[in-house]
């Protein structure tokens, strides 16, 4: 069995009266791609924000390589080798690409002064690696000048910089064209091939089905299903299950409407 990289145990989170998560368990093994699915508002982003230390859980435990952690924070999670591409991309749009890639992890030398040339070199290498460099911009271009897809590229470049052991992607392909989406999936495969792990959140179940080794379906703050890829025959199975979870007993009208909508796309 592969090494257990990350484990979230019985995580709950409430925002005042709103219960975003109620006792969620989630684990990621080394070299595994986990697909996290669920409706809008199911609590997916909240869960990964807890994992990346941005949001403090109301209760629950986080284990890294089998050891429970205390004082979990965004900085700690990055030190532990977890990099996250957040749903809102988390970019500072008035800053350069370089400053965004090295945000919170500046390359410094003498007395905390920046190693600017190193940073620029590294940034251009990363952007080339990702293949998001078709336009004429430089590591010193302002992020506010980039298109949505290019900004996503910056966020991904930032996440792969440190050869992180776990890369969390929260809906990385929304707002991306087909080619750019394909690049993201290519990148996911590369990461897995190199023995590192990915936690992938997506709304397109076909996409998630194609790349994930395991699926976790969240529904209104609870895990509705955890299953290995081998146990699911097709993406349609997964879709049916999710619809069953969302509308127990099968709301016939809704079901048909949803189907028609998906066919229309």
């Amino acid at each position: 069995m592969a090494e257990r990289l990350i484990e979230l145990r019985d995580i709950s989170k409430s925002y005042g009266q709103v219960y975003a998560l109620g006792g969620v368990n989630l684990s990621v093994d080394r070299g595994e791609v986990v697909g996290l699915l669920g409706d809008n508002g199911a609590g997916k982003s909240t869960l990964i924000k807890i994992l990346s230390g941005v949001v403090k859980p109301t209760s629950g435990e986080i284990l890294v390589r089998g050891k429970p952690v205390t004082g979990w924070s965004a900085a700690r999670s990055r030190e532990a080798g977890i990099e996250t591409v957040f749903q809102d991309r988390a970019l500072a749009v008035q800053q350069t690409i370089v400053r965004n890639i090295f945000m919170g992890r500046e390359l410094t030398g003498f007395m905390g002064f920046l190693r600017v040339n190193n940073e620029i070199e590294e940034a251009s290498r990363l952007m080339r690696e990702i293949g998001f460099t078709s336009k004429v911009f430089t590591p010193q271009s302002i992020v506010g000048q980039l298109s949505g897809g290019e900004r996503q590229g910056v966020a991904i470049a930032r996440a792969i910089y440190k050869q992180a052991e776990l890369i969390v992607l929260d809906e990385p392909t929304t707002a991306l064209s087909l080619t750019e989406t394909a690049k993201v999936f290519h990148f996911v495969r590369q990461v897995r091939a190199s023995g590192r792990s990915i936690l992938f959140i997506g709304h397109n179940i076909h996409h998630v089905f194609d790349i994930a080794d395991r699926f976790v379906v969240l529904d209104r703050g609870k895990v509705a299903l955890t299953t290995d890829r081998s146990e699911v025959k097709s993406a349609e199975d997964l879709i049916n299950f999710m619809e069953e979870v969302a509308h127990p007993g099968g709301l016939a009208g809704l079901h048909d409407a949803g189907d028609a909508e998906q066919r229309a796309r």
């Binding site: 941005v54 900085a75 999670s77 809102d88 970019l91 500072a92 992890r105």
Partner: peptide, 8 residues
């Protein structure tokens, strides 16, 4: 918010 998410 981004700064915080990046551990600053």
């Amino acid at each position: 918010d981004s700064a915080q998410q990046m551990g600053i």
